[in-house]
Write a protein that binds this DNA or RNA. Structure first.
Lengths: 345, 345
DNA sequence: GATGGTAAGGTAAACGTTTACCTAAAAAAC
DNA sequence: GTTTTTTAGGTAAACGTTTACCTTACCATC
């Protein structure tokens, strides 16, 4: 009898002695349509029965559900997982529900998810690392509520949330410059991404003299790409060298290879990654990285959607920050050259 | 006109010259209710219009949606994120859609999500790290399709997918034993979890002589707990010592503290974690850890749900494996004592 | 006292499915 | 040649909401 959660609006109406229309209006806070005492009776009945409107009924009537989908390109990347977590919390605060999907950067899978989410009358779709695909083009043309995060839409102007990748790339270049490293190498993953392209562009624009030794590989994971390419992109000579890794995962792989080759990081080779995975402070004190503000993505996404639903085309640029880690030797036999962490010995 | 994705069953019926009932039956593959030529006409019409049944209509009629919710206790833990990714892929293959939520181990939030998911007519709810809460108890009593992963239900018998935590704890103890470490310390997080309790129990049962030096802390993150407690749980004396950390995150924090104290890992202090985060091979070669088979969770969850929907109470125990990493000195100045990785120098 | 406005609430339609039930023809069984 | 069964398909109800429209009462204004 109480709060089993399966009550319908009709049962609430019966119990409160009103029509279902009145119940609906009270629950939705429509002003001036119910007297104070009536509203109280309705609320009491709803509480007693544990009533909560069935979303299928709502969605059918309103041609719109409370679902928002997050289509991520690669959930194995902790950075994307962290963004997903932030978005979920922010959506929940708005009474929205997040559907999570991993497109694995495959156009077919992305299309399948897009179609599925349209069938679910999703109120919005976040593309966290979009890839060009037929249905994406079509839905963007149809005016669907799409929001692109990190990578811009391959189909032209659309809502966007992310950092200024070009500037971030430039910042990395400036950092190498300040450290006296004239010709750092670059290791990147797939080039499908506007983000990657912008970062490299900004980097090269600031270090124009640097003969670019770009490399990538066919390996399945970013870590493996980093491992495979690390030695190939090192500048010749014996001075201090550097590598710009387009993701932290690549940097992890590169680091492993460099260590195995007897090189010290960051003393012999300065490694700079991208994303600054939340765990880096603990497990990669040798890695400098461009930190993206994970916790900022959720609120930014919500704000961007509100803008989209007003018919605008939002563009939210979040601040990034290059976190320079001087690197702590993980073997105490070798004195550390410096510290960046917040923990005292 | 073509494939804009918003067609309804009525439009398909009109185009194919049949009734909507026939369209529905053809789309759902109900045998012996439509002739071959009729079916072909329906399929052609559906293809031409890009028709896909609206899930709100389906859910309303069938009193059940294609949504499955994953309520995770802490998405900041990469292990949970990896499990979520695996579950998502497996559900998708069944034509199901995953809703992801982070309960932050808070009963109120978990209850809110449970209510929301019931309102969404979710076909099933995965609790990845459940915590006791009023609505959980009620829904389990009502016979909702709940599946507990990692932590068992606090309300007694229910479907479960996870590893044998007691045995895993015992394996860790045996490992310390084999390494000649008689009295390792233990650092754990909140005790709300049956998993944590089982691991410690199995551990202590196998190392009964070990005066248990358990410790935990009020810190917000597991890493910080590890950092705060590492030195407190070390056995006195100067032999080789060890710490069993109930999660990899705790181990990261402990490692940092030990290094700062001038101790070598794993030479001076053997650290064993739990979960074996997918990144450990790359960033924590000094950490031995109990690996849970991330990729196995998705298929296991699907299989468990099928069992639940048949009215059974499944119990799927996945295999674990203690990954012993001999630890590679991350500073090449100090020769490595051994290697566990698959990469050659 | 007629007129008009507004607050309060009821009636019923509509959203897009699936499916129980019905009908008609064809095939099979006798 | 009658009866029964099977196949192929249509009709309409039902799922639970929200909301356009209608009605009634009340109050204010002239």
């Amino acid at each position: 009898m109480s709060a089993d959660g399966t009550a319908t609006i009709a049962e609430v109406a019966a119990r409160a002695g009103v029509s279902i229309a009145t119940v609906s209006r009270v629950m939705n806070g429509i002003a001036k349509r119910a007297g104070a005492d009536t509203a109280e009776r309705v609320w009491a009945a709803a509480r007693a029965l544990g009533y909560r409107p069935t979303s299928a009924g709502q969605a059918l009537r309103q041609k719109q559900s409370r679902l928002v989908a997050l289509l991520a390109a690669n959930l194995a990347n902790p950075a994307m997982a962290a963004i997903a977590a932030s978005v979920e919390a922010a959506l929940r605060e708005q009474g929205l529900v997040m559907v999570l999907a991993d497109t694995h950067d495959e156009p077919d899978l992305q299309d399948e998810y897009l179609a599925e989410m349209r069938a679910h009358l999703a109120r919005g779709i976040v593309l966290l690392g979009a890839i060009a695909s037929p249905r994406l083009r079509q839905m963007q043309a149809d005016g669907a509520s799409l929001l692109f995060v990190n990578r811009r839409s391959p189909e032209g102007a659309a809502g966007f949330v992310g950092i200024d990748n070009r500037r971030a790339g430039a910042d990395v270049a400036a950092f190498f410059n300040a450290q006296g490293i004239a010709s750092p190498g670059i290791i990147h993953g797939a080039r499908t991404s506007s983000a990657t392209a912008d970062r490299i562009e900004g980097f090269l624009a600031t270090l124009p003299r640097a003969k670019p030794r770009l490399a990538t590989g066919p390996a399945a994971t970013h870590q493996q790409i980093g491992y495979d390419c690390a030695l190939n992109v090192l500048a010749p000579g014996k001075g201090r060298r550097g590598i710009f890794c387009l993701s932290d995962l690549i940097a992890y792989g590169a680091h492993r290879r460099l260590i195995e080759a007897g090189l010290r990081v960051p003393e012999d080779v300065l490694l700079v990654g991208f994303d600054d995975n939340p765990m880096n402070d603990w497990v990669a004190p040798w890695l400098s990285s461009v930190r993206v503000p994970y916790d900022g993505f959720g609120p930014a996404v919500v704000s961007a959607f509100q803008s989209i639903w007003r018919g605008e085309r939002p563009e939210i640029i979040l601040p990034h920050r290059l976190v320079a880690r001087c690197g702590q030797a993980l073997d105490p036999a070798t004195p550390a050259t410096g510290r960046s962490g917040q923990h005292s010995p």
